[in-house]
């Protein structure tokens, strides 16, 4: 089946009963037709693709939750390590530790003390 081709030269104020305002001047007829079975398969396929895309999006969104959770855990562990270091520092600088330190042990009592104020 071939489409009819019409020769047409548009001119202003043309008064031809074949062509009136608002009418398509060309028409198209597909070379092949999609049958009902193929249409159903196509629609189902499209729905499947969309579903996969939706699931992918949801999974991706959920995976961010795990990333966040992992970061939170890492942050908590780093804070705990920082806390441990701070506590150890405090213990080492405690009065008891200072009094028992080698520096304190090597100190001597001055022979005389004079206060300036």
């Amino acid at each position: 089946m071939t489409a009819k081709r019409l020769s047409f030269t548009p001119t202003r104020h043309q008064n031809n009963s074949m062509f009136t305002r608002g009418q398509n001047l060309t028409s198209f007829e597909a070379r092949g037709k999609i049958g009902p079975v193929f249409s159903v398969i196509l629609i189902v396929g499209l729905i499947a693709v969309l579903s996969v895309m939706y699931l992918f999006q949801i999974t991706k969104s959920t995976s961010y939750s795990y990333v966040l959770d992992s970061i939170e855990t890492e942050k908590a562990e780093l804070l705990a390590e920082s806390e441990d270091l701070r506590n150890e520092n405090a213990r080492l600088q405690s009065a008891q530790a200072t009094a028992n330190s080698n520096v304190a042990a090597s100190m001597t009592t001055p022979a005389t003390i004079e206060q300036v104020n």
Binding site: S61, T62, Y64, S65, Y66, L68, D69
Partner: peptide
Amino acid sequence: TDVSGTFLPTS
């Protein structure tokens, strides 16, 4: 939360 009880902040 998921099955393991982990909160899902994006939910």
